[in-house]
Design a protein around this nucleic acid. Sequence first.
DNA 1: ATGCGCCGGTCGATGTCTTCCACGGGGCCA
DNA 2: TGGCCCCGTGGAAGACATCGACCGGCGCAT
Lengths: 157, 157
Amino acid sequence: MEDIDRRIVGLLSSEGRSSFTDLARETGLSVSAVHQRVRRLERRGVIRGYTALVDHDALGLPLTAFISIKPIDPAAPDDAPERLAHLTAIEACHSVAGDESYILKVRVASPGELETLLQEIRTAAGVSTRTTVVLSTPFEHRPVAAAPGEPPAAEVS
Amino acid sequence: MEDIDRRIVGLLSSEGRSSFTDLARETGLSVSAVHQRVRRLERRGVIRGYTALVDHDALGLPLTAFISIKPIDPAAPDDAPERLAHLTAIEACHSVAGDESYILKVRVASPGELETLLQEIRTAAGVSTRTTVVLSTPFEHRPVAAAPGEPPAAEVS
DNA sequence: ATGCGCCGGTCGATGTCTTCCACGGGGCCA
DNA sequence: TGGCCCCGTGGAAGACATCGACCGGCGCAT
């Protein structure tokens, strides 16, 4: 039964617009059953939304980079995510263990824009930056696997 | 006109399952016009697919990490992506500039699984690894912005 | 054992959405 | 001016989403 939910998540993860009819066929359930399972997964937050996967080259944002940031003043409060949220070139922000405190993933149009963005990040968050430019992306956004381990079976209100 | 395409991509990027009716309302076009624009964006590869955004914690994969890899033998052919593709825990693989050659993004259930995965990566690709564990993710998969710069207006067959 | 309630399933009806087709207007060039 | 192409509109047909009613199995307490 939980298996079916995993299967549904996997299917939607690799084909986010597939119809309930398709999901029903692939899971062996009725359309209604699949429908209410998906709604439940959405309500529970297991499925947090849907998105189109985009070719950033075609959109004029061909330059991807990872920017690791480190606070200049270690005593300052660490609110970098809020300070950086308005910069729409930042696609993701991960708090990480290690020498640096966050890793950002950014998409820009050109090296010039990257330079500007780095300055904005430094001044907005009071951090130093270390940038790793992406040359190419063999794969990305691969669908979640059919999950080997035990699900946590946690309960929240 | 190109503006409208950007707008459509933005909308689908933040709400990947919105109906053509909704898109039509938000763009001021007719349903048919939006429909053929979306199809064209898909055919051209600007939209490469759709996916559900998933809560990996809820799926039993609460541990995210970035793994930077570097070939042990610099003379060996660099085919790491193909050698690693079968490892479904790897969600993304970026070729990068800098000291290391690739950055992988992985999702696993536990530190134990991460250890196993690291060994698999090392033996499968003949690389050394450097791992950065993600503590939390303030944001991720933010929709593409309304694009400031000039689109490339390239033409391909 | 029996009866009850809950969970999760099927079935069927209704309204919405997708998808396709025919048609029309504006820009461009001969 | 006429023809063509691109891109838009509108409408029709069928597929799909969505909701309610019903139903069967399971666990539990009587």
